[in-house]
Design a protein around this nucleic acid. Structure first.
Lengths: 145, 145
DNA sequence: AGCAAACTCCGGTGGAGAACCGGGATATAC
DNA sequence: GTATATCCCGGTTCTCCACCGGAGTTTGCT
């Protein structure tokens, strides 16, 4: 399980959007990028991908920006990650499958492992992450006192 | 979960070694490569890695080759994959951790997902894979009749 | 009307890793 | 001592990641 910059940036950005979700006003790329120290031109690409996947909506023009397309508790981490990571290939998923029985069996186990990981990502929502962070913050405060 | 060529080649090679494990004679790179259609010079590198991890032993010189270091039912897929895939970095695992609370929480979930996938890989041994393949083969025969 | 922000599409760079190929040194069975 | 194998060192091509930048378009607030 590699944690790519892409996925982490996307999650950080969506977390930021989740924090301001109640305001019903769009957040600009610049603000998100500044808050989470993400290169803005790169974040733009990621948000474009998330928009095409229907996870965020964009508003163009002055006072525009991005808003979550759904409530933060209705967006799972799996949706985010597979939107951002799995863009590349669908046309030939079977291209390398049929090589040998060994190859087939290996791919089956791999698939099982992948589904186990996906299950974890699916049970967490953006809301869950934000709450996790908040309670962590409170713990830090307690230690400080 | 990406299935890289490296991991698949390594598993195929070890599966081949497992098949000939009872003979107590080493298998050459060329034979393994020919049997599983793996580029031999590439397979050499992978076997070197597996040797350094203590999963196979090598015998140099004429009539040399490779043998499994342990019995096929004592080698898990997780060992193979982490040997072949995870060589790169230990010195600074904490380098990017401390950026923000958000980053920390994300990494925790990621780690949980990784452990879920590892658990799957760990419950299968080379022996299990070979048996899976064999029973699959018998099914194919039944369909043929 | 004008500005501010989004979007689109274009291009490039630097680095890392994957997936190879090749040569020469070294060890070992015969 | 020669044939046979591994071992070690190197290089190549390719793709993807993580960015940076510009030029032009669309949209909406004021």
């Amino acid at each position: 399980m590699e944690l790519s910059c892409k996925s982490e940036y996307a999650l950080l950005a969506l977390l930021e959007l989740a924090d301001h979700y109640s305001e019903h006003e769009p957040l600009q790329i610049r603000q998100i990028a500044a808050e989470q120290s993400i290169p803005d031109r790169y974040l733009e690409q990621l948000l474009a991908t998330l928009r095409r996947s229907g996870l965020v909506r964009s508003q163009r023009g002055a006072r525009g920006g991005y808003i979550l397309a759904r409530e933060p508790w209705k967006i799972t981490l799996l949706e985010v990650v597979s939107s951002i990571e799995g863009t590349d290939i669908q046309p030939s998923e079977l291209d390398r499958e049929a090589k040998s029985l060994e190859g087939l069996v290996i791919r089956e186990v791999w698939h099982e492992a992948g589904r186990a990981a996906d299950a974890v990502l699916q049970k967490y929502t953006l809301q869950d992450l934000a709450e996790k962070r908040n309670s962590r913050q409170q713990l830090d405060l307690m230690y400080y006192i």
